[in-house]
Simulated scan of single mutants.
Amino acid sequence: MIGAFCGSFDPLTLGHVDIIERASRLVDTLYVFVAVNSEKRSMYSLDQRLAWLEAACAGLPNVRCAVQNGLVVDACRKAGARVLFRGIRNGQDCAYEQNMAFMNGYLDPDVETVCLFTKPEYDLYSSSNVRELVKYHQDVAKFVPACVLKTLLEQEEMDENIN
């Protein structure tokens, strides 16, 4: 069976990586799509977010990373994915994901949404929180994988050298 997991990953967090690892154990192949969210302005480029995903998933042989253009159900259809995994941290996520599952099911009834609950240690990890911490030069080491931290530290060092 082929599955998919998509997100903006702006930036990728340890919570995302946990969902990817867990979802990858449930399917033969998992496509992880970097999505362009039309309602959000991204802090990091698509290329950067895809590079982070590829680095973080390097040890997962059944995971393929790609950019998603358009609707997630179209990306699922193209990849042959019958299962769309989503992560849920709290009640607010649950309501949002329920609505998205309904809409995706309406658009393609052959794609089933499966929600995985975030582990308690990651339930407060969000890309929005990480972006805010980065903006104010705070330590984000406990929130992001090593590949993301390395890039952020390099960017911070470059910024300091410019100023």
Rank of each mutant, 00 (worst) to 15 (best):
G15A: 12
E112L: 02
N69D: 14
K119I: 00
H137S: 12
Y122T: 05
D108H: 06
R89K: 03
L133A: 13
C6D: 06
D28M: 02
H137Y: 08
R77V: 01
R49K: 12
G7H: 12
L133P: 00
Q68V: 03
E156W: 09
V144H: 10
Y106S: 04
F33I: 00
V148E: 05
A95S: 09
K135P: 00
S38E: 14
S38K: 13
I19T: 11
S24W: 03
Q155H: 06
V34D: 01
D110Q: 10
A95F: 03
E132H: 11
V63A: 03
S42P: 09
F5A: 04
A141P: 00
A51S: 14
L149H: 08
L149I: 04
L124V: 08
C94W: 14
G7I: 08
V140G: 04
T118Y: 05
K40M: 02
K119M: 02
V130T: 07
M103Y: 07
E97K: 02
R77T: 11
N62I: 02
M158E: 15
L50V: 14
V63M: 03
I19M: 07
N99I: 06
K78H: 12
I88L: 13
K135I: 00
C76F: 13
A66E: 10
R77Q: 15
V83F: 10
G80F: 04
V63I: 05
Y106W: 14
F5T: 00
D47R: 13
Q68S: 07
L149Q: 12
S42L: 09
G7W: 03
Q98Y: 08
C115W: 01
N161E: 10
A75H: 06
Y96R: 06
N104E: 03
G59M: 08
G91M: 10
G15N: 09
H137L: 08
R64T: 13
A81K: 07
R22S: 06
Y106L: 14
V111R: 06
A58F: 00
G105K: 07
E132V: 02
G59I: 01
G87V: 07
G87W: 05
I20Y: 11
Q92D: 12
R82T: 11
N99V: 05
E121D: 08
V114H: 02
V148K: 04
C57F: 02
S128P: 07
Y44N: 13
L26I: 10
N90F: 05
D28R: 13
L60N: 05
A55S: 13
L53K: 05
E154F: 00
D28I: 06
L153W: 01
C76P: 09
D108Q: 02
V130K: 10
R131G: 05
F85V: 01
V17Q: 11
E54T: 11
D28A: 10
